[in-house]
């Protein structure tokens, strides 16, 4: 199965990259953009058949390595067929 993992800075933590892009979008005339947050997107192929087991594995991966929970939140989606 395939997993899509999203890692983003926690709410309240200043995201200078996002702010710079927001300003750039404003310059281009996209004036409705109120906030931009930059994150990471990771796609994993897992040799798993059990959803619960895959969820536990991904959670453990995120906590240990893929996200730094001091500054980042993570969420993920699991796609059984692709």
């Amino acid at each position: 199965m395939k997993a899509k993992i999203f890692v983003t800075l926690k709410n309240g933590i200043l995201d200078p990259q996002g702010r710079t892009i927001q300003q750039s979008l404003h310059t281009l005339g996209f004036s409705t953009v109120e906030e931009v947050r930059i994150g990471k997107f990771m796609e994993l192929d897992l040799n798993e058949t059990d959803i619960t087991s895959a969820e536990n594995t991904i959670k453990s991966m995120c906590e240990k390595l893929l996200a730094n929970t001091v500054i980042e939140d993570y969420r993920f989606e699991i796609l059984e067929t692709y």
């Binding site: 800075l9 933590i13 200043l14 200078p16 990259q17 710079t20 730094n68 001091v70 500054i71």
Partner: peptide
Amino acid sequence: LPGAMLRNRHL
């Protein structure tokens, strides 16, 4: 050590 590093304020 506690805490984490973010990108520099001015990138």
